[in-house]
Design a protein around this nucleic acid. Structure first.
Lengths: 339, 339
DNA sequence: CTGTTAGCGCCTTCAC
DNA sequence: GTGAAGGCGCTAACAG
């Protein structure tokens, strides 16, 4: 592998000129630059990233800290879509960024901050991380630029941004959708209560109820920790005693679990019971019946996260939080009830 | 961020001792080592990876070159599963590897080799790459350790390994499954003919036919380029003229396309026509009817690829090709015909 | 515009 | 066992 030195030598210039040429400095004569490029090509030279990172203090690597890399739920590929979005944004930018995926479960020996510093990672995107994560707080307090997904950051640290859909609004919409179709006996299959996303969605559902003049007391909320299995078990148990007209689930995975329980109880969807999801994972259009749900555009989320991160790093972030549009996907799992 | 110097100073030793301590050299007194570690912890020190890579010529980063990062097919998450497998294998190893994802479509300006050299990438795993890829050949000729997926490498370069299921065998199995159920008018929806995977699967189907004493001439093969849309169009057109008893598809995505065409033709699956897939993507169990297919364990594939790559790098690879077990997933899309 | 030079943080002989 | 010193390849002042 040719080094900058060899290029310089062969082109009869000093290394600094070569360096400048490659870094688009303008104080290099065009002619010289061309000559250098020619030689570089001939020698098959390309700058060594390690050396580059070492000497220039610029940090151009971004880390993607995610809980979705090692989890066993093959159905959950949000992390990958987010990844795709980040990748695209980065590929389209003028930066030469590389992406480091870190699994939150694996990363227990060492704090994220430490990991990032070691690797000269200049900014991180956090996905599927909980605010009570042992290292989350540490990261937030650092001056490392971060973008968190599905978390609303409350600190006044200017280096922290966030991206998410408007969960309250989305929940309001899907609850409203059910209410409009005359569902009054709705059971909410919620996720993990401490979670920002969960709180927002609960809020949205409540708002929808209120705007229909309904009492909140009547609302049954079952907490299934965003787990398919948990949702299945809870729904199964619930169905032994009561039969609501609809299950409003805070994730598609949980909706799948619920559907299984409903079917096992000998009930039909949507004839006997309606079910809705949240996320719009790929398989939602293939379930029987196809699941009505809220679509989150994870690719878009990832893309925006990467762009926001760059903006933060360059100190020109306009908004600290970016809302991504969601979409109600109307399919076949909800029945309109007689008034 | 503390540097090795500061640690050395505070521990009253020279930097080299610190370096050695961290790199498990044995010529450091245990007592000193402990003292150094204590100081390091106190100073929150951890070695800088860039500097490390720069000075030691060891290459511990592996690259994952994939066609699946930027493609728009959200249904196709094989790449992610492979990625997961690689990640796990790497996380379990004693190496500190980081993963670089490279999209083959994006990577047009620069050869893989060059990309890897720049980043000090010591080995690469190629996924979804075609042997006629402009940079593939170059890579194979290099001394960069590589593991290719779904390609059978013919060169005698000892640095190249490969991992895949036994495609011929799998195809034989699923074709046999159909034949056993008395299907005789089978249309194969194949992928891209130049592809290793495709050739093997064709071979497998032919072998199955032969072992039943059937003529190969009767076999209809439609090439749909592994595309859902193409498969849909071809099946649609074919159904206007003829009606086979079964479509044997070389990918689930194509099977989905075929199923759509069949349904649109007013035919029922599996009553009128049976359909089989290949891959077992997540949504296969949710289709209506659930798709009978060949399951590829992509996570396992990724894991083995990473392990093989390490073995190659350490010069102790036993086999150059690793076969991963596949599995016939029997679901509801095939009907047993009357004899 | 171009060259010189001092690091960046760490590893690795080679002396002591 | 430990320390000194020379690089790894590149960037960024600072001179010229």
């Amino acid at each position: 592998m040719a080094t900058i030195k060899e290029v310089a030598k062969k082109a009869n210039v000093s290394v600094s000129v070569v360096s400048k040429s490659f870094n688009n400095y303008k104080d290099v004569k065009e002619e010289t630059r061309q000559r250098i490029f020619a030689v570089a090509k001939e020698l098959d030279y390309s700058p060594n990233i390690n050396a580059k990172n070492l000497s220039s203090k610029k940090r151009m690597t971004i880390g993607l800290i995610s809980s979705g890399v090692l989890n066993d739920n093959v159905k959950d590929s949000n992390a990958f879509d987010i990844f795709k979005g980040v990748y695209r944004a980065v590929a389209d930018s003028r930066f030469d960024l590389s992406i480091n995926l870190i699994d939150s479960k694996r990363q227990t020996q060492q704090s994220y901050v430490q990991y990032c510093r070691e690797r000269n990672i200049g900014g991180a995107i956090l996905q599927g991380i909980r605010t009570d994560d042992q290292y989350y707080k540490e990261l937030i307090d650092t001056s490392l630029p971060c973008v968190v997904l599905d978390i609303m950051n409350e600190s006044d640290n200017g280096m922290i941004g966030s991206v998410s859909i408007d969960n309250a609004k989305a929940a309001r919409e899907i609850a409203g959708y059910l209410l409009q179709r005359n569902h009054r006996d709705i059971v909410v299959i919620a996720g993990t209560p401490e979670t920002y996303v969960n709180k927002e969605r609960i809020k949205g559902v409540e708002e929808a109820l209120q705007s229909c003049g309904l009492e909140l007391e009547g609302l049954t909320v079952l907490e299934a920790d965003f787990s398919e299995e948990q949702a299945y078990l809870l729904a199964k148990k619930y169905l032994q005693e009561q039969q609501p007209t609809a299950f409003l689930c805070f994730s598609d995975l949980m909706a799948i679990g619920v559907m299984k329980a409903v079917k096992e109880a000998g009930l039909k969807i949507p004839e006997d019971i309606s079910v809705t999801g949240f996320d719009d994972l790929v398989f939602c259009s293939y379930t029987e019946p196809a699941l009505t749900t809220i679509r989150q555009d994870f690719i878009e989320i990832g893309k925006n996260a990467a762009q926001l991160l760059q903006a933060i790093k360059e100190n020109n972030a306009v908004k600290q939080h970016i809302w991504i549009e969601h979409q109600l996907m109307e399919r076949d799992s909800v029945k309109t009830l007689a008034n």
